[in-house]
Simulated assay, not measured.
Amino acid sequence: MRVNEEDNNGMSRKCEEWGSGTVVQLCPPQQHGHSACLVCRGAVLACIRLPDGDPSWERSFSRWPLGVCDHLVPVQEPFHPEEWACRTHYIYIWTEPHNRYTVHYTYSPEGPLEGFHPGSWERVANEEMWQARMKTAFFLFDLAERIQGEGKDRLFELSYTLYKEIVERHTDYPPNWDRNLALASEKLLRSGKQGHSPDSLLTCSIQHFSMYLDKEPTDSQAPAIRTAVSHLLQERTRVRQRRTP
């Protein structure tokens, strides 16, 4: 199926970013579940998650995050973390509040909805768009966990930097952002990467683990997180004591 600019302007604009003009190919939905797979003259974008099933593509392609989409690239193509972080930095222009469906939802038979119904596709789409903001940071963190060597510390640092910037830019955001920032902060601390204050990293981790627990007190991992916070508080005390003359 060929989709022109009038049919799907957003998809065409995304392809234009990759230098392909305005024509894209949309993979048949019966083959790809809920994903939209865009082919933009050499750039393959799979949007709203890749479906489970045939993993044969993994032998030939790597998956890089691009907003709500994944950019599939040949496995031999080198990945440059800083360059990709910059490339995906300003693509998020979603303006709906994250809490619109939980705080401002009202319904009137005579009027429009103010907010998103808890079971609506709008709520799902809104959550997808918000979570897309942190996909690059999550990807870098996960990549750092899976590799060894000098690049590992660099990936943890970049992931932490992106998470921190995203969280500090918003006042209302998904609760898992706090947990992820706390984890990234602690991982950077353990990596021993120079240029970061252990006190500030510990404080960041303690603060955002605590904020996550306030928002998600019934999380099955809450007891483990509370234990981790207790250990981090003790470690921060020792750090400050060593610093005292």
Rank of each mutant, 00 (worst) to 15 (best):
P81M: 02
E168C: 11
T244I: 13
E5S: 15
A222V: 01
S56K: 05
L26E: 08
G19T: 05
A184Q: 09
N99R: 15
Q148W: 09
C37K: 07
L50R: 03
R49H: 10
P97V: 04
R133T: 07
V124I: 04
S12M: 09
E145R: 11
C40G: 03
L66C: 10
T171C: 02
E17H: 10
L213R: 00
T244Y: 08
G151W: 00
M129N: 01
V68T: 05
L232R: 03
Q241H: 12
V124Y: 01
W64H: 07
S200W: 13
R169L: 11
K193A: 14
H32L: 12
A184V: 08
V68K: 00
A125D: 11
P118A: 01
W130I: 00
E145H: 10
L188N: 08
L38A: 04
N126L: 01
D153G: 12
F138I: 15
N8R: 04
N4D: 12
E216S: 12
D199R: 14
S20L: 01
R242N: 11
L188E: 03
P29T: 01
W84N: 03
L50G: 06
H231M: 13
A228Y: 02
H80A: 15
T102Y: 11
H170M: 04
V167M: 02
V229Y: 04
P29C: 11
E235C: 06
V23Q: 12
C204M: 08
D142F: 14
I93P: 06
I93Y: 15
W130V: 01
C27R: 15
P109K: 03
H32S: 11
G192K: 06
Y105W: 09
E6T: 15
R100P: 01
C40Y: 07
L232V: 08
D7K: 14
E6Q: 14
W121P: 01
G19M: 03
M211W: 13
A125W: 13
V68H: 00
R59A: 06
S230M: 12
L188D: 04
Q30E: 09
H231Q: 14
E58F: 11
D142P: 13
C69L: 01
G151M: 05
L181G: 01
D219E: 02
V167C: 07
Y105C: 05
W130T: 00
W177K: 09
G115C: 01
E186K: 09
T203F: 13
E168L: 12
R13C: 14
R133V: 08
N8C: 05
L188F: 03
G111I: 05
V3E: 08
E235N: 08
L232P: 09
M129C: 02
L143S: 12
T227M: 12
L162T: 06
R154Q: 12
R49D: 08
V24S: 12
I147M: 14
Y92F: 10
V3G: 04
G33C: 03
W130A: 00
N176I: 13
E58N: 06
S20E: 06
T88H: 00
K164I: 07
R63Y: 06
N8I: 05
A132W: 00
A36G: 13
T22E: 08
Y173T: 06
Y212M: 08
D178Q: 08
V68I: 11
R133Y: 02
K193P: 10
Y212R: 05
T227C: 13
